[in-house]
Nucleic acid binder design. Structure first.
Length: 360
DNA sequence: AATTCGGGGCT
DNA sequence: AGCCCAGAATT
């Protein structure tokens, strides 16, 4: 990999800009109390949470997670459901199980220390090329590249790159560019964080602040006025509509809950008994599936949007001697719950004291 | 190479 | 309504 003069210049400009703005940057706010010593375990946890998740949404979750599992040993010894429960609201819940498994592997195979080599890091469940590079560079100072959505946007604009960032060619190109820059940098961690931070705060998807950009003189997209049209948008996943009928059954001050299957959406998480279908779920269907019901009335409906689904929730209140696990409000709030099911359960069980969905 | 996995924020 | 987000694993 050649290291041209322009690469050194870009790396220097990004690192300098990052240093000058460090105090004001959102991520540094996280980093300051998230991993002040750039503790590798802290970086592992925060980077796992940050996968496809914006910094602002991670901060509170990160705090409570680290309070519960301060060290990799604590996490390795933790109860699986406890780990998943502390992930509630963050989405992509398989990350929680993988992080848990990674902690166990670190204890068993890496002597309780997060490895610093990318090759070793890639052996950890849930750790891919990005996360491995982030830990290696940020926590260990290794000159390892990273490419996330921010870096891809910065690099595509800097070079007026028309290739799709998702395509094999685009990906190869991005990683080679990122590698050239990190090798030209004095501090790999600062360079990588600087590239991401630049993308998050200056080189934004819409309305980039090119006039304040430390790379404006080198940026081909800016020179051509093409900053708004690069990078080219990725293919959109198609969404399908599904219907969930959730039935709230109370017994004294408790609600009936069930655990979801260990695959698919919200794997292993808890919910009010729910019937899923491609078509609206009829009352007759509910009665058929839950014959013990003696009454059934619709409470409300709402829609829950995810990347691949539009879920039409209909919530019912039912009564009858339905067997299963009944939990109090304080108990179900400690269960692993999707935001949708948190909303369902909040409709009756101690709704006034439940945290709002937005605050979770 | 395409899909699956959440959920929210911002146009 | 569409797009993206400090991605990874599976098919």
């Amino acid at each position: 990999m050649s290291m041209s003069r322009s690469e050194r210049s870009v790396a220097r400009n990004v690192s300098t800009w990052f240093g000058e703005h460090a105090r004001d940057l959102p991520w540094r706010t996280v980093a300051a109390h998230a991993h002040p010593r750039r503790d590798p375990y802290a970086v592992l946890v925060s980077e796992a949470m940050l996968q496809q998740t914006q910094v602002a949404r991670v901060i509170d979750k990160y705090e409570s997670f680290m309070a519960a599992f301060p060290t990799v040993n604590d996490l390795a010894d933790a109860d699986e459901q406890h780990v998943l429960a502390l992930w509630s609201g963050l989405g992509y819940y398989r990350r929680a199980g993988r992080l848990h498994a990674a902690a166990k592997m670190i204890v068993q195979r890496f002597d309780g220390r997060v490895p610093g080599d990318v090759a070793d890091l890639l052996k950890l469940p849930g750790v891919g090329r990005y996360t491995a590079g982030a830990i290696a560079s940020i926590a260990f100072g290794r000159a390892e590249p990273i490419v996330d959505g921010n870096v891809a946007r910065v690099l595509c604009r800097l070079h007026a790159q028309d290739a799709l960032p998702d395509s094999p060619d685009g990906r190869r190109w991005l990683w080679s560019q990122a590698e050239a820059l990190v090798r030209a940098a004095d501090d790999p961690g600062d360079l990588n964080e600087g590239l991401m931070e630049l993308g998050a705060t200056v080189c934004t998807r819409v309305g980039p602040a090119c006039r304040q950009c430390p790379l404006k003189r080198a940026c081909l997209a800016c020179a051509a006025g093409r900053q708004e049209e690069l990078p080219r948008p990725r293919r959109r996943a198609r969404q399908r509509t599904v219907h969930h009928a959730s039935i709230i059954i109370e017994r004294a001050d408790r609600i009936l809950v069930e655990q979801r299957a260990d695959d698919g959406m919200w794997a292993g998480m808890w919910q009010a008994p729910t019937i899923e279908s491609d078509r609206p779920v009829s009352l007759r269907r509910i009665r058929h599936e839950m014959p013990a019901l003696t009454s059934l009335e619709r409470i409300t409906s709402f829609r829950h949007i995810t990347t691949h689904r539009r879920i039409m929730f209909t919530v019912y209140r039912g009564s009858g001697n339905v067997p299963g696990r009944y939990v109090t409000p304080s108990q179900w709030r400690r269960l692993p719950l999707s935001n949708a099911q948190h909303r369902v359960l909040s409709l009756v069980g101690g709704a006034c004291t439940a945290p709002s969905v937005a605050a979770r």
